[in-house]
Write a protein that binds this DNA or RNA. Structure first.
Lengths: 232, 232
DNA sequence: GTCTATAAAGTGATAGAC
DNA sequence: GTCTATCACTTTATAGAC
């Protein structure tokens, strides 16, 4: 995978850094070229000179973070697949392979941790945000590996069920990274001020249970839920 | 709760409907007043006449959908709390109380189902999207009830852990509603073309397992995960 | 590679006629 | 309540001087 468009330095780096900070705070749509050049204390024309267009800068930001993240995700999932192990270990391997690369990317970022979280959370979760083609291909590869591992744990489940579980995990992860302020408000502070590692530790318990739901453990076969309010 | 700003008709309704369709497709930030009036085949000045400003229209759209949704969520969770039952039933009650009102709102909407899903998914998940104050209050009330019920099932868990689980559920729900196209692409079609009820049925299995993780069931006490790749 | 100046189009909002 | 015309800005992008 060509890394030319992932590495960035000098004037380009100043622009990218300023852009990332603003994208993290306000979202990709709500930031203008002027906001970015002002934030970087550079000339208004510099974005077009260095990146061709606003869109080129957005693509660079996406690629810069998501390329190494998805490459690491692919590598980790591959490693889990090769090393094998009992179901519980595979399940933890899927979660760690899926989530850890995102966390590592947060740590690698030069942005302050809360901003890096918001930026990654947005890139993973924001609707109608087109990924550069190279990145989309990596996302596909990672997804295929995740799906393959899921099928080892739940061989009788429909592949489409497993695909959706990985998708739910991504939604919960995006929420864990980007929406801490929302939880603070809605929970009147009960959510606490957790750093990203603590939040991911909580997500880990939640998601591993969800991903593995239904794996044969005779003791907890689905009871008939006759008293449930609704039937989905 | 005053419903004056929730019910809308005549010219206002035409504008709201056109706006909702565009917001669902492109997101709230990416739609201009001109796009909306063109979509409604109405005059450019009509948005400001009927809603005071673009922001007023956005607030109306949010309130129109989220007010009944959160009111129903509060009512259902209250009902689950009163009727009680064994843990498993409470757990299903929390999920249904949390998610069913959203699904009902999708069905109530005059928009085509896929658009209604995207709109609701965006309102639940889109970062930096300010809720009108009345709606924010309802969201808080619903959250408090959900948290209260969670504490009945997992009395020994930290409240902050339970708050985050509800937050993860919201993230996964938003993903189930709004990002079907993304899953289709990433999974190369494995995700299938599921309608919203089927997607929610899958979310139900995933999330109920995650929400209830750790509730005392001696048979499945956490095994030491010595072989896990990472320790969070 | 950085700058100014400016083009060309789009933005939300409003005054005032009908 | 609907319309036109327009204001006052902002948007991305670029030509051309330095």
């Amino acid at each position: 995978m060509d890394r030319a468009n992932v590495r960035v330095e000098g004037a380009k780096l100043r622009l990218v850094t300023a852009a990332e900070e603003l994208f993290a705070q306000r979202g990709f749509e709500a930031v203008s070229v002027r906001d970015i050049t002002k934030g970087a204390d550079m000339n208004i024309a510099s974005v077009n000179y260095h990146f061709g267009s606003r869109e080129g800068l957005v693509a660079t930001v996406m690629s810069r973070h998501l390329t190494p993240t998805f490459e690491e995700r692919i590598a980790l999932l591959e490693r889990v697949e090769r090393s094998g192990g009992p179901e519980r270990v595979l399940l933890e391997g899927i979660f760690d392979g899926w989530v850890r690369p995102v966390l590592n990317q947060v740590k690698r970022s030069s942005l302050p941790e809360p901003l890096a979280c918001q930026l990654l959370g947005r890139m993973l979760g924001e609707q109608s945000l087109a990924m550069p083609t190279g990145v989309a291909g990596l996302a596909e590869q990672a997804f295929a590996r995740g799906l393959n591992l899921m099928a080892k744990i739940l061989p009788e489940a429909a592949p489409e069920e497993l695909a959706w579980r990985l998708h739910f995990l991504t939604g919960a992860l995006s929420q864990a990274l980007a929406n801490e302020a929302v939880l603070q408000r809605e929970s009147r502070g009960v959510g606490g001020k957790l750093n990203v590692d603590e939040r991911v530790a909580r997500l880990r318990r939640f998601a591993i249970a969800g991903l593995g739901e239904g794996k044969k453990e005779p003791a907890e076969m689905e009871p008939p839920d006759s008293q449930a309010i609704f039937n989905f």
